[in-house]
Design a protein around this nucleic acid. Structure first.
Lengths: 144, 144
DNA sequence: ACAATAGAAGATATTTTTATCTTTTATTAA
DNA sequence: TTAATAAAAGATAAAAATATCTTCTATTGT
């Protein structure tokens, strides 16, 4: 469904959301360990999300990544769009460039329906909503 | 959502279903042209689908690919499972190997729901059902 | 100022996916 | 039974995704 890059991105963003209340910051090494991802790879991904303003960062000692309060209200759809683009939300299920409402592929309308549900689900899933259950160890971002 | 390979596979199977009523056969070259895919690549894919019994083939002059009557009742889910595996139906949305009902990732239950709908949609989509609209040019498998 | 820390950036490497090319085998029609 | 046809099979190539390595820059605490 998502690229590996996107899976890491979502996990990292949720992790950062959880780890950085009270304005504290969390380092790349800790993030990579916290979500079981390659350190340099997730660093790259966060650089991009940082440029796009989804996450803040600061260099130097005591530096690291953190979220602005408002970013807790960002949705998983925002992350997916930046990392994987809007193919998942808009693209043809059979990969046809010219597929459209008026020139549909055979599964166009069936697909439209489930795709819309995926989109709605991802748009309604806000970063802030995952924190509590993680804190209570009811959900996990790496091998539990 | 699907790999390129799987997109081609689905398009090819629907195309073969459409082109081969009355026991006629359709060649690789025509299939590739009919669905806009690389000839050698779709050949490989059909070899696998043939080994798995989703499609029949015959070598030599007047040879080609065709479907047994019963195969018209095969679903897109059958194709997806063979080509892409069951990752789409069973895998964790965030790529976590250990994710499960008792050890869920943060989006496990939201995902389960939409994934199930995708599966149901694909299981209910039978190869035979696409033929009529293709015949009437109401849907397309390549640039219309 | 200086040494240490940590992210940014760019280059490189590996793996997987996608695509192509060549040779072999089965089938047909003459 | 031979020449032509078309799929099967295996090898190779190109492109994209994933992962790693090295150097540079900003920030901090002393």
């Amino acid at each position: 469904m998502f690229s590996k890059t996107c899976e890491y991105a979502i996990r990292a963003m949720i992790y950062i959301a959880q780890q950085t209340r009270n304005g504290s910051r969390v380092g790349i090494r800790q993030i990579a360990a916290g979500i079981d991802s390659p350190e340099h790879f997730i660093a790259k991904i966060l650089q991009e999300l940082s440029r796009k303003g989804l996450v803040e960062s600061m260099k130097g000692p005591t530096g690291g990544f953190y979220l602005e309060e408002a970013s807790l209200n960002r949705s998983l759809a925002d992350i997916v769009k930046i990392v994987d683009g809007d193919q998942l939300f808009l693209g043809c299920g059979l990969g046809l460039k010219q597929c459209s409402e008026t020139n549909p592929c055979p599964i166009h309308f069936k697909f439209k329906k489930v795709r819309k549900e995926i989109q709605t689900m991802l748009e309604n899933a806000k970063l802030g909503e995952f924190i509590e259950k993680l804190d209570r160890n009811e959900t996990f971002l790496r091998r539990g």
